[in-house]
Nucleic acid binder design. Sequence first.
DNA 1: TTTGGTGTGGTCTGGA
DNA 2: TCCAGACCACACC
Length: 818
Amino acid sequence: MSDINIRFCVIDADHIVDENNAYVRLWGIDKNGRKVLCVDRYDPYFYVQLKDELDSNVGIKLFREQLARLKEFGGGIKNIELVKKKLLGVEKNFIKIIVRQPSDVQRLRDIIKNWEIVNEEYEYDIPLYRRYLIDKGIVPMGWVEVRGKAKPCTEHCDIKVEARDVIIFKDAPAQSHILAFDIEMCGNDIIMISMVDNKNFKKALAWGWQKGNKRVEILSNEKELLERFISLIKERNPDIIVTYNGDRFDFAKIRERCDVYKLALNLGRDDSVVVFTKRGRIRSAKIKGIAHVDIYDFIEQILGPSLSSEILTLDMVANELLGVGKKQLEWQDIESLWRKREGLDKIADYCLFDSELTLRLADYILPQIYELCRIVGQPLFDISRMPYSQLVEWLLIRNAYRKGEMVLNRPKFDEIRRRREAEPYTGGYVYSPKEGIHEDIALFDFQSLYPSIIITYNISPETLDKKNGEEHKVPGNDHFFTTKFKGFIPSIVEELIRKRIAIKRKMKKVKKNSIEHRMLYNRQYALKILANSSYGYYAFPGARWYSRVCAKSIAAWGRKYIQDVIDFATRNGYEVVYGDTDSLFIKDCDKKRAKNFLEAVNKMLPETMELDLQGIYKSGIFVLTKTGTVAKKRYALLDYDGKIVIRGFEKVRRDWANIAKETQEKVLLAVLKDRNEKKALDIVRATIERIRSGKVDMKDLVIYTQITKPLNEYDQNAPHVAAAKKYVGRGKVITEGSVIGYIITKGDGSISDRAVPYEYAKDYDPEYYINNQVVPAALRVLQGLGYKEEDIFSATEKTQSSLESFFRKSFKNRIFRR
DNA sequence: TTTGGTGTGGTCTGGA
DNA sequence: TCCAGACCACACC
């Protein structure tokens, strides 16, 4: 076959083997959208370090002899080489053992680790395709130029090339063909599958109904439905498949049903079946050659904490990010329609819309994941499922190779346990707020405080306590960091920060809302995620580059800087009303004062550190705790556009009912914006009235709480645990991570006794919602302004409610009722 | 096996 | 019956 030369954007990577060799496959598309498969032979390897006392020449000779005695490995070992690499900054000798197949790495390592002359093995747990991407400098969602031989293709691609040369080539991610799908079930049956892609394809498959239509194709049974689904995927042949919770649900169910009918779920480009790779307790559905991205996974791991949705359902998340929710249709309705073989269009609408929402979410979120792929340098499938610690770790691993550093081994189970049991260290400093309402609050914060400290003080495991020249001494303890050479991790963090600054500069020159702007935003956001995770990574027990002392030192310097700035402010006539870790709030501070302050502070700071003005707020409020101190981490700020920022209050907590949260927000607005406390009281009274009258929508009474361990491990029967058990009683599966939505109903017994999953709740207890939700949430704001519980209840009710409040206190959480 | 510490607050529980 | 403390979740940064 002829020689070809092709450029393409890499989307997925994996490896295969034949009897003799291992090959890495790169799957992607060229600029015309043609599917490209590149196959490149690559030999797996790992490193061995011999015992210190052995001279390297003697050692390697001994090692060779011992290897030679391993008859069963004779053919498996391709070569061994003596190489020099840095281990935590110190150059050392290692033996690089090159083998034929990925499985040889594990097998050989298991044997070698027991040898007397061997000290340690390294880099034995890096999958071959990841190894290849790192060693060649290839980044997924980036481009390569391949020279090689064109090959006949049996893998559903347009071009297949056997690589001779692969070089990297810079360009933006290609426009991929993306397909979303979603299933509907009744009992154990999959009754419908919808598919939507970004090339105007839209179809639902169903069975059981008499007649289909243009949108819905009717198959005669579930088996045929599944077969049709498989053939349609193959026909469309997308580059990326997106699902919402497909790992745990859609793909899992499809596989289950395929197993029943003994159907091969062979969606792979090479006709391989969907593999469920283990990832802790969860299994991920992996398709060879097509990147399956489960949007839910990414949201749960990375995006979730920055969202305000109480639960991360497609409906809630789409509402928050796209402003569009799901079509409303309960599963009971689907079931009853299905049993009667009615409402095909209704179900199809619903099912198709789910796929569409998933595709639109993907449109929004995938570009962010692409940027992470390009920075961390691992495939889309992998990156979209990585937690923060893994993203940082793989970024470090790639850069370790680039800088000649040996990748440290993952801690073993016992080591992780030991690390986990370590005493906590002191973290950020919180300056006690000044109670009440303040005007013109300027909010200052450090730009990436911890990353900038890592860079400034060269904080890295290998620079720690190295006495060779001048050192940075950690404030408040005896550790220090050398300045003689640049640490491995600080150098990576510095690159992240530098790139981010450059991008932010570029962003200012680009039109807002343009595609270019969006791309730059995503890129800087990805860099920010990684830089900000570096501190937490040091203290994470599962980290390869774990260093508690590094983490502790970063926090110590952080405390010093924020305290210094607060001291400086106070000494110079600025009144600080609050500060937390890397921020401070100054009252009565207009733009000019703020500017002066910034200038003065930044002059004193090291070059890499910078204080920013986050904004100036018209007013803000700090309230008391129930013990009478001023509450930290709870405040509300009102900006000059009349918008309110709420932190820490019940309003922003998912374990409070909407009715209480909304009332509290209105109270805050009345107090801060309208400066009308009477109005605030009226709002609360009106809410109480609504609750009493029974006119409150049940969904505004739902309290969401997460189950964080197996139900039987709970010591206390908390309301959410009791509600979860009621789910279990009805045959629902509740696992760690499940978020329980429950309502406190009328009746006898404790709150837990009366906590019922909201789907099953028939009524609600008005007294609970008044006394334990709305009133405490409102009082939190009003108490500091001199109002008491009695003030809330109107004159006519007063005797009644004070009496109730008296009994409530007497009986604690058992609500008094007549 | 799913980054860290700091801080607030609700409900349950068992001993006085 | 009352209370303190344990337990638990979730916010902030």
